[in-house]
Design a protein around this nucleic acid. Structure first.
Length: 440
RNA sequence: GGCGCGUUCGUCUAGUGGUUAGGACACAGCCCUCUCAAGGCUGGUACACGGGUUCGACUCCCGUACGCGCUGCCA
């Protein structure tokens, strides 16, 4: 088998779409599995719609997902340049070839490719053998390859570049399946041999519509901002349209590369499920080393405006350690542990109504006194103190845990109470309980 | 409209003629438990429909319906 060369060829007209990222991912996996090359080519022929930000978003998104390219912008390669806007001479040359073969005619200033008007068989690695009948010009008009202003149309430059870059397998979205016979006609008119094709199913929205740029979750950037883990997003994307054929879902990327096969790509479109991604991200988050968790957590808190630098590192580490395993995505962290970094917080209204009651007031007071008497203020001692207090009062431990949690964190949910009290320290804990006691 | 592709729990999927149709997410309940998670257990919900072929169809064939894509001087 000749060298496997695949490419991802986005056009920088928006942000990196999650569907595009998945297409890039499948190409990358295919290249890595076969020890081939993954090429990145920017299709920026439509100058009016291209933006620098969009191009940056493509690079950033791919890098974030760990989809490194062997040839393309920044890294170069033997078949560059990798921006179509810099390849115009090449297109002129190929156009000349077509013109010499009388395949081109002019129409209102634009250049069109004259279809041979035959049946074209597309032998697709995913979709199978499909027979397209292009004989009717009414339903399959001759495609334009160049606009009157001289700019090139996608179909032409895409085909030319795939040929020039010696692309062996074209793995792209199924929305291109119907274009493929036309591309094959073009390739044959150029006297070349078509590459192998694999059209992968599209990713749909929850409502069954195609994921559009409108949807927040359609952008890779969204997952970066929300504090998702790239490995989790990448893993999830693999599961959309591809399956290891056993019941495994959380798969190491090395393992996926090892077993990836286009034969195991499904043929029907898949609906993107944010819940499942959220769950999978939690699985990855729980596996993070303490150090990695700490680094990511601190970065997240800082970007959210939490002044972690005002606290000793040991305190921050201890505080964050109580949160590990509790959150699925890092954007959940600031509201979850903000109480560690400010004394100025309100009480959850429903929680206050339920727990800051006349009945609980003496209980909270008893806890305060019990904690105040502790010499060693660690989780074990705190736990013992709370349990003793509960026993003395003749109530279940939960009867006092809730008011204490609310008083010290302002919330009804959070890290383990005993551990969080230890981290806060005796002084802060007593002050917070006193403050709470003054409110009801 | 024409052409193409598709259709298994709400969602992602396993399944390639004989299965109690499996797993996961989500959901519900229970257990564990200092809250919330995590973990454990349990539960409900699926082969779009109609014809064939066959001793036997989720699996094969045809049709219908529905969905999506293409039908651009977008990519």
């Amino acid at each position: 088998m000749p060298e496997v060369r695949v490419r991802f060829a986005p056009s920088p007209t928006g942000f990196l779409h999650i569907g595009g990222a998945r297409t890039a991912l499948f190409n990358w996996l295919f290249a890595r599995h076969h020890g081939g090359k993954f090429v990145l080519r920017i299709e920026d022929t439509d100058t009016k719609r291209n933006t620098e930000e969009a191009m940056a978003a493509i690079y950033e998104g791919l890098e974030w997902l760990g989809l490194n390219w062997d040839e393309g912008p920044h890294v170069g390669g033997d078949f560059g340049p990798y921006l179509q806007s810099e390849r115009t001479e090449l297109y002129e040359r190929y156009l000349k070839k077509l013109q010499d073969g009388s395949h081109i005619f002019e129409d209102q200033g634009a250049l069109r490719f004259r279809s041979p008007r035959e049946h074209v068989i597309v032998d697709d690695l995913v979709c199978g053998r499909i027979d397209f009948d292009l004989s009717n010009p009414a339903t399959h008009p001759d495609m334009t390859i160049r606009r009157p202003d001289g700019s090139w149309i996608f179909h032409f430059v895409n085909v030319v570049d795939d040929l020039e870059m010696k692309i062996s397998h074209v793995i792209r979205g199924e929305d291109h399946l119907s274009n493929t016979p036309k591309h094959i006609e073009l390739i044959r008119a150029l006297g070349a041999t078509p590459p192998n094709y694999a059209h992968i199913p599209l990713i749909l929205n929850r409502d069954g519509t195609k994921m559009s740029k409108r949807d927040a979750g359609a952008r890779v950037e969204y997952y970066i901002q929300r504090g998702f883990l790239p490995a989790a997003v990448r893993n999830y994307l693999c599961l959309l349209g591809w399956s290891p054929k056993d019941d495994r879902e959380k798969l190491d990327i090395g393992e996926i590369i090892r077993i990836f096969d286009v034969k195991n790509i499904g043929r029907s479109s898949a609906t993107f499920d944010p819940d499942k991604l959220h769950w999978l991200n939690g699985e990855y988050a729980r596996e993070l080393s303490d150090e990695n968790f700490y680094q990511l957590a601190v970065a997240r808190l800082k970007s959210s405006g939490v002044k972690v630098d005002d606290y000793p590192e040991q305190y921050v580490r201890a505080a964050l350690q109580t949160c590990k395993g509790k959150i699925n995505t890092f954007d959940e962290l600031p509201p979850y542990c903000g109480f560690y970094f400010t004394d100025d917080f309100g009480y959850d209204p429903q929680g206050a109504a339920k727990h800051f009651t006349a009945e609980n007031r003496p209980r909270l007071k008893a806890v305060r006194d019990s904690l105040a008497a502790l010499e060693k203020f660690d989780a074990a001692e705190v736990e013992a103190a709370l349990k003793n207090t509960a026993a003395e009062l003749g109530v279940k431990i939960r009867a006092i845990v809730h008011p204490v949690r609310l008083a010290t964190t302002g919330s009804t949910v959070g890290p383990s109470l005993y551990h969080l009290l230890e981290v806060l320290g005796k002084e802060k804990v007593l002050a917070r309980i006193d403050r709470a006691l003054s409110t009801f």
